[in-house]
Design a protein around this nucleic acid. Sequence first.
DNA 1: GTCCTACCTCAAGTCGACTTGAGGTCAAGC
DNA 2: GCTTGACCTCAAGTCGACTTGAGGTAGGAC
Lengths: 143, 143
Amino acid sequence: MAELDIGEVARRSGVPVSTLRFYEEKGLIASTGRRGLRRQFDPGVLERLALIALGRTAGFSLDEIARMFAPDGQPRIDRQMLVAKAEELDATIRKLSVLRESLRHAASCPAPSHMECPTFRRILRAAESGAIGASRKTGPQPP
Amino acid sequence: MAELDIGEVARRSGVPVSTLRFYEEKGLIASTGRRGLRRQFDPGVLERLALIALGRTAGFSLDEIARMFAPDGQPRIDRQMLVAKAEELDATIRKLSVLRESLRHAASCPAPSHMECPTFRRILRAAESGAIGASRKTGPQPP
DNA sequence: GTCCTACCTCAAGTCGACTTGAGGTCAAGC
DNA sequence: GCTTGACCTCAAGTCGACTTGAGGTAGGAC
């Protein structure tokens, strides 16, 4: 497959052109070069963008993501860090599962106030230690 | 248990005083009243803060969280919305699981470049549809 | 060869989520 | 009765993640 220009990458990935330029500037993605003025991208950038989107959903900052995966897709040799991030993510997933159950319960619970519902409070208590003062990052915004 | 002043809430929850005032202003938490100038909080605010932290981790905006749970802990009667959020969360959890496996794999994979590793690419492809252009929110920041 | 459009740069603007700072109040301990 | 510390308000500042705008360039259809 040939190289793509930025508009094509935007079309295929759903990521705005302005964001692609911004990501390149930040070193999150790399163009293979220019044709005239125009950046050319390897189709592999699409996978990379999927990865970045995933990381943003996970609440990692762009800087963290850049540290996890080098812009050229080369191995990020800091395996320890990767394992640590995976564990961080594991904790996040557990918290989100709690929240999901809380929401589902809240949607079906007949108690007049959720806070008066024993089930809801039990779920919450399970989350409380660890949930407060938890890891904090900035996530992505809707287009 | 008696009412708490803001400093005590901050101490017990790990949430800075400035953030507590900010959350009150936004209607995310409510004080029961004042003693002199000082806001008094019901200890139940701690559970609420846990819930807010959970929501932030999930990538929901403060406005969304406010819509999910009224400041006084009263039922948010929009059960449909709660179910919808639970489903949104479910999708997020699935994506994060993919990312977690990707990270774990990246940490142990001997391939010179992750993008050359068939396992990694397979994992990514599984994520690709749906991961790009996914739901976008702003998450919390580390203190 | 010219014109259209998709691309380019660079500076400035926006938005959400907080934090910081200046200046003020009050209850308790000395 | 005065000081101290924990609280108060309100305006402004910060930070990450983008977006917008003004002004310029160039590949390719005609």
